[in-house]
Design a binder for these strands. Structure first.
Length: 600
RNA sequence: GCCGACGUAGCGCAAUUGGCAGCGCAUCCGAUUUGUAAUCGGACGGUUAUCGGUUCAAGUCCGAUCGUCGGCUCCA
């Protein structure tokens, strides 16, 4: 949470304590073990180790008890204590003891991450409830607004976030200063639900999931595929313009290649099991890099003069995502990356980074996803990484200086790197303010050497190129999921699967509609005719609900005049216009890739 | 994978303590030929996710499996 939310921070932090007290009172003394309860964006949570699972029916009594505690208006009192005193206080609270250990050693915070300085151990007391807590809090429980508080959900959460630890029960709540703010927040959640791409995907007939196909594998309808096609064509054309070349490398690869590239050792958790074909062991591709490097090698000797060589590919990759982590289109098992591998010299890293950056920026701007931050993802202490400190240091330095040379602001995240190198990840905010990791630019000094990729340098000697991995929209599926929600299903004209719906008023206007449809199709405009025996109003309503950008209504007047009554999805009835003008207007809007954003 | 909730017609939902499985929309058929967000009437549609158990009787209770949803480090 940011600093200017100090008062909300205190409110939510305090609400977490009040909730913990309420939960403890729901059970017999000593039955509830409390873990941690921080404020978070929009609210707070507290993790408990409970004698039984909670159900949604448990929330109202807890909430009721919280209001009573608030009404009792206990002061929050801070007390600094020694580690020994802290241990005595929480003798029967194992999680708190573990936290105290971490604090006392000065080494670890509550998640087991290293701390800079040895902190002061402090308690906060409110009434009968004592918690190990750094604070700050509101002064009295009465400063919490009971009408601006709501418990939201129950979830499981591992102690310290590690699946090796015990699963605790987490209760999420939300808290605000005023009831109106709470209402607003709940309203935002409702809006987000309406835009849920899984719901819109079904309503707009874009994609489906089937038990017969398997989890995490979307099936795209003609309309959904048209969206994919438009998105991919756009990036493809732009890549071509920027000097990237497209290649194609199929979906299966001999396992041995992944042994040499390092995937088998470092990425096998995400890979599907091997397929045995007599003496051959094959794998579904989880990444393109080894294939692109192999292609580079097969194409013969490469001179330094050919570099940088940029191989782009829209390829569907297969990744084993954990069951519980699958989520609509944003987390699937068949992932189509708009991938690219640039083979270049160390000197070229900076300019290649700049090129990729320009491409990424142009694409994100087109989608009105221009509010993004860049995360420099580095190797962490744990996790699987190819061990080669020298190359990691080189790659990290190179990426940092490329970021700096291009005047890019970024923040550092340790432990987020790929197994072969550091990344610059683009994290964009959608119209609802949610973060999505989309584009990525990665520097890899490791894989080319492992696979023996070489070029002949100016000195006539073989050298190992640097590999830059780069994705613009990241992958088609997730990006589509994000933009469905971002646009609330109302795609800009250039992207819309059906751009124009022709609405003949009566059956006798169908021939004119067909004639008009052909005219528009000849201009490359995607058009459909609603020839049902329905009333015009009903056809308009359906086209509007399908979020079709333009409706052309045609009756006797239009047929006689060679015109169409234009209705815009966003602006309503625009009146009758000659077809020539309609075509000009549509083509201009398509070419401009104009976007009309809807408020969240 | 783990914790919890859920799974009734293509979609959205009903069904009393266990007692004949229904409504709306969509679909199909018929009538209507309509001027900027829903024309009227009729018909079709189900092994209640799957498998097993309890019971005279299961959508409802129990178990397993499959699937979906909410979560699983936004720093005590």
């Amino acid at each position: 949470m940011s600093h200017n939310d100090d008062s909300l921070y205190k409110i939510r932090h305090s609400a977490a304590h009040v909730m913990a007290q309420a939960v403890m009172e729901l059970f017999a003394p000593g039955e509830v073990k409390i873990a941690i309860g921080p404020p978070i964006e929009d609210g707070f949570y507290y993790d408990f180790d409970l004698p039984r699972p909670l159900t949604p029916d448990d929330l109202p009594p807890i909430e009721k008890r919280m209001r009573q505690i608030i009404a009792q208006n206990h002061p929050f009192v801070r007390r600094e204590v020694s580690a020994a005193a802290a241990r005595a206080q929480f003798a029967d609270q194992p999680y708190k003891l573990e936290l105290i250990d971490g604090l006392e050693k000065g080494g670890l915070d509550e998640y087991g991450n290293p701390l800079q300085e040895k902190p002061v151990i402090s308690f906060y007391l409110d009434g009968p409830f004592v918690d190990l807590c750094r604070g700050p809090h509101v002064e009295r429980t009465g400063q919490l607004n009971p009408a601006a508080l709501k418990l939201m959900s129950i979830a499981g959460a591992y102690w310290r976030g590690s699946e090796k630890n015990k699963m605790l029960t987490r209760i999420y709540g939300t808290a605000w200063q005023t009831a109106a703010q709470l209402e607003e927040h709940l309203h935002r959640l409702e809006e987000a639900k309406k835009r849920d791409h899984r719901k819109l995907g079904r309503e707009l007939g874009l994609f489906y999931f089937s038990d017969d196909i398997g989890p995490g594998i979307p099936l795209f309808t003609p309309r959904g595929e048209m969206l994919r096609h438009q998105m991919e064509s756009y990036v493809r054309d732009l890549q071509t313009k920027y000097g990237y070349q497209h290649v194609w490398t199929a979906h299966m690869v001999k396992e041995d290649l992944y042994r040499r590239s390092g995937h088998l050792e470092n990425y096998s958790d995400v890979m599907y099991p091997p397929m045995q074909d007599e003496e051959l062991t094959m794998r579904l591709k989880p990444m393109n890099c080894p294939s692109h490097m192999t292609l580079f090698k097969e194409m013969g000797m490469h001179s330094y003069r050919e570099l940088p060589l940029r191989f782009a590919e829209f390829c569907t990759l297969y990744r084993y995502e954990k069951r519980g982590e699958l989520n609509g289109l944003t987390r699937v098992r068949a992932v189509t990356q708009d991938d690219c591998h640039v083979f270049c010299t160390e000197e070229q890293i900076e300019s290649e980074f700049a090129l990729a950056l320009r491409l990424v920026r142009e694409v994100l701007n087109t989608y009105h996803l221009s509010d993004y931050k860049i995360r420099l993802s580095l190797r962490g202490e744990q996790g699987k990484y190819v061990q080669d400190d020298e190359k990691w240091a080189k790659a990290t330095t190179a990426l940092k200086s490329a970021l700096d040379a291009n005047d890019v602001d970024y923040f550092v995240a340790e432990g987020e790197a790929a197994f072969y190198g550091p990344k610059a990840d683009f994290i964009a905010k959608d119209v609802l303010g949610r973060d999505w990791q989309l584009s990525t630019i990665q520097v890899d000094f490791i894989q080319p050497a492992r696979l023996g990729v070489e070029y002949i340098g100016e000195d006539g000697q073989p050298h190992t190129p640097v590999l830059i991995h780069r994705a613009v929209t990241g992958c088609t599926e997730r990006f589509l999921g994000v933009i469905i929600e971002h646009f609330a299903g109302a795609f800009p004209l250039w992207l819309s699967p059906v751009q124009v719906m022709l609405i003949p008023i009566a059956d006798r206007h169908i021939p004119y509609a067909q004639q008009t449809a052909q005219r528009l199709k000849d201009e490359g405009i995607r058009v459909e005719i609603d020839a049902r025996a329905e009333r015009m109003n009903s056809k308009i309503r359906d086209a509007q609900l399908q979020k079709t950008p333009y409706m052309l209504v045609m009756g006797d007047r239009e047929a006689a005049a060679g015109a169409a009554a234009v209705r815009s999805r966003d602006a309503g009835d625009l009146g009758s216009k000659p077809l020539d003008e309609v075509v000009r207007m549509l083509k201009e809007e398509i070419a401009s890739k104009r976007v009309v954003m809807r408020a969240a």
